[in-house]
Design a protein around this nucleic acid. Structure first.
Length: 277
DNA sequence: AACCCACACAACCGCCGAGAT
DNA sequence: AATCTCGGCGGTTGTGTGGGT
């Protein structure tokens, strides 16, 4: 068979990351920028495989990641996009700034799938399946114009907050007042408004505004996509990659916008909220 | 108090594509 | 053209937590 997975190597640690490991990883990435993951375990002394380091950074330590409950609008976005594209989590995540594909995938598998199953059976009992807007999509493989992907609770109070702290520390490393930070501020505003319609709408619009390469630009500024500290050649190469991605990453939103804004979308949100209550 | 079980989610695995050699 | 390396993605698993009995 093929070569053994990198994480099967002797001496490679598995399991939950400790705060100490996180700090080592974050410190290294602060100095060298994300990328070249192969060299990370070697240079940091971390007993983790490169893949594990990359995932830890991408899903948890990367600045600007929002954790915690999904808003009804985020739920709605996920449901619509899943229906549209299937289980293309990375693509869906590209329309939900601050959420990782892993987070969305988990949320779908643990919450939304069940909710929709229930709702769908309720719909099915009342009308023909073709009228249901809630069918769990098996689409995805057939969609050629997909946007390309890029992108402790076990110690919820202590560890999650330590991760947040690391993220906050990193915000100082980021360029101040990035679009991402503005979004975080908007989110804070929204939370302050505590469910007021204005606040929710504000966030919703900001989500829809993530078009025309905003995401890529944001990621560049956050340092996730841009090879900070790497040599010039790597940067040029990266620019080329970005240009190439940009042409793939920005599907026309007009259809999607209309979908999200049409009546069925609000019906769905209502249905979901009803199901939650 | 002890056990069981469902849940939530972090982390891993396997596969794939792109780029380099 | 073939092979290798790296990084990304989606599916799945492992494990701690909390609620119920």
């Amino acid at each position: 068979m093929g070569r053994p997975p990198c994480c099967d190597k002797v001496g490679i640690k598995k399991g939950p990351w400790t705060p100490e490991e996180d700090i080592i990883l974050v410190t290294y990435i602060q100095e060298h920028g994300p990328g070249n993951w192969r060299s990370v375990p070697t240079n940091t002394g971390l007993l983790r495989c490169s893949k594990s380091c990359r995932l830890r950074w991408t899903n948890y330590l990367r600045p600007g990641i929002k954790r915690g409950n999904f808003t009804p609008h985020e739920e709605g976005m996920i449901v619509h996009l899943q229906a549209l594209w299937g289980n293309k989590w990375a693509a869906i995540a590209s329309y939900l700034p601050q959420r990782t594909d892993n987070d969305i995938k988990n949320y779908w598998n643990t919450h939304l799938k069940k909710k929709i199953k229930k709702l769908q059976s309720a719909f099915d009992s009342q009308m023909a399946p073709s009228h249901s807007p809630l069918s769990i999509s098996t689409a995805g493989k057939s969609h050629q114009n997909m946007p390309s992907a890029k992108n402790a609770h076990h110690y919820p109070n202590i560890y999650a907050s330590s991760t947040q702290n690391i993220s906050r520390l990193l915000e100082g490393w980021m360029i101040s007042s990035t679009p991402q930070k503005k979004l975080a501020d908007q989110e804070t505003n929204k939370e302050c408004l505590n469910g007021l319609v204005e606040g929710v709408d504000f966030e919703f619009e900001s989500v829809l505004a993530f078009d025309n390469g905003c995401w890529d630009k944001m990621m560049m500024m956050s340092g996730d996509y841009y090879p900070k500290g790497n040599d010039k050649a790597a940067c040029i190469l990266h620019e080329r990659k970005l240009q190439k991605q940009e042409s793939l990453n920005n599907p026309p939103l007009t259809f999607f916008d209309r979908w999200l804004l049409d009546e069925s979308a609000s019906q769905l949100d209502g249905a979901i909220e009803q199901q939650v209550n």
